[in-house]
């Protein structure tokens, strides 16, 4: 069996100190295999976003280890870590974080720009991914002139442009109406099933969570085996 693409052992994370100390994670271990689709489900404040941030190497755990494709994350230098985030991971956030003044295409190719890809190649790959998401006709539009669903597709395009192995999404449909949310969901699952991208999504939406191969339920900073709330 190959190394899991992401493996976490006894992760803890706390914020603040003294009486204000808040333990967001109290010891979480998990393995995620290549090509899996995993939902991290929990209520707000359960620590699910913190867990995703740690898995995505955006934050460092208090204790515990994270292994990416067999490599211990803590052993990576700053430059390697940046390269890994840039090439291996794609991020879709609940807020879109688009630059409203820049065009759709410019927003999409930002990861390539950071990676130091040349302008011509950036454009080619940017247009390719926009076509994949049926946004090619909006490439020149200002990002601020798009609807919510279109914006979320631009964000997905931006996450996909550097052909990541893992796509992280934090409440990807949280800001969208049901119909648009459904379209975005379909896009994400299509990427997982047909392009082999490992999908890790944080959500509190149980209907969305049902569509994943695996669900990790989290409460008060600990993984729980069953969907207690659903059962209750």
């Amino acid at each position: 069996m190959p190394d899991p693409i992401l493996a976490a052992r006894e992760l803890t994370k706390s914020y603040g100190r003294g009486p204000d100390r808040f333990d967001a994670l109290k010891g979480v271990s998990l393995d995620i295999q290549h090509g899996e689709s995993v939902a991290i489900v929990g209520k707000s404040g359960s620590g699910k976003s913190t867990l995703m941030h740690l898995l995505a190497l955006l934050d460092t755990p208090g204790t515990g280890t994270i292994t990416v494709d067999g490599t211990e994350a803590r052993s990576l230098s700053g430059r390697k870590l940046n390269g890994l985030r840039n090439e291996m991971f794609g991020f879709v956030f609940q807020q879109f974080f688009l630059n409203p003044a820049a065009s759709v295409l410019e927003n999409v190719v930002l990861p390539l720009k950071i990676a130091g890809v040349g302008a011509r190649e950036r454009r080619r790959r940017g247009m390719e991914v926009l076509e994949q998401l049926q946004l090619a006709d909006k490439a020149r539009n200002k990002a601020s002139n798009l609807s919510g669903g279109q914006k979320q597709r631009v964000v997905i395009a931006r996450a996909l442009v550097n052909k990541p192995q893992v796509l992280f999404a934090d409440e990807p449909t949280g800001n969208l109406d049901t119909a648009t949310g459904r379209i975005v969901e379909d896009i994400l699952f299509d990427l997982n099933q047909n392009h082999g991208i490992t999908l890790i999504v944080v959500t509190h939406d149980h209907d969305l969570a049902e569509r994943f191969q695996r669900r990790l339920y989290i409460r008060d900073g600990l993984l729980i085996t069953t969907d207690e709330e659903h059962a209750a």
Binding site: L58, R79, N82, R85
Partner: peptide, 16 residues
């Protein structure tokens, strides 16, 4: 702030 955070999340180094 958020834009900087995003760029750093995408692997932009502090030096850049």
């Amino acid at each position: 702030t958020r834009e900087i955070g995003l760029m750093k999340a995408m692997g932009m180094g502090s030096g850049s």
